[in-house]
Amino acid sequence: MKLKNTINQIIFYIFLTIFLVYIISPFLWQTLTSFKTPQELFSIPPTWIPSKIYTGYYINVFTKRPFLTYLKNSFIVASSTTLFSLFVSSFAAYALARLKFKGKSIILSLVLSVSMFPGIAIVSPLFIFLKNVNLLNSYLGLILTYTTFAIPLSLWILTSFFREIPFELEESAKVDGATPMQAFLKIIMPLATPGMFTTAILTFIAAWNEFLFALVFNTQDSMRTVPVGIAMFPGEHDLPWGDIAAASVVVTVPLIIMVLIFQKRIISGLTAGAVKG
């Protein structure tokens, strides 16, 4: 019996190791690539471990390419989107979760249905619209679009959060003479902070990673976001693998740190819909 247990344990750890290697190795390879010298990078068969740490591509990315501009653009767009969508969704979520009015179910269905919208299905009229109002190659065009697409998930998470806060808290505030607005700002909001935080992280990551709208709306190099910028690294004839690898590491490492710190929140936010269903 004991032997069988040990064997089971060993099998389990073998599977776990395979699984972890599978998950981590592609990015690890990319990181190794970013530190190889050009000779090592373009050797056949490939060099696995760089013989020394070569930082040429990192220097390249920041000095010969407008990568800092891409980072700045992405940061402005993603953080504004996060703020806008938190603002708009927390109001709506509060109303849907705690106020009595007609048509809630329709409103919620309508908003949630948008999370299913394929970007490609609205990109042509939005492009024409943004062109007419001169918002192509702007931050605002992207921020508005991203905010809209962030609302469904934010609303979903926040509504579930607001629902779990006991109604008595609000009732007693109302008895004390607080208006519904005051009850919301002073009592509900502080208690919903964890939910807001989860929503903020998910919104930021989604906006940071978005590709299609950024590709179509912001075609000027100075207005490109990071994903589009990196996707445009390859030129007509050459593939600057080293630069791509270095840029990938720069963009991904902060995301990985974020994920390591906030993994519990992210997981609870991502799975909020699935478990209850």
């Binding site: 981590i24 390879w29 590709f211 994903p227 990196i230 693998w241 991904t252 994920v259």
Partner: peptide, 21 residues
């Protein structure tokens, strides 16, 4: 669990370039 989130968090564009190489 945190490791599992890494592929999810990496921008699709970057994972596509990674695999392309």
């Amino acid at each position: 669990r945190a490791a599992v989130l890494i592929p999810w968090a990496i921008p699709t564009v970057i994972s596509a370039l990674m695999w392309k190489f």
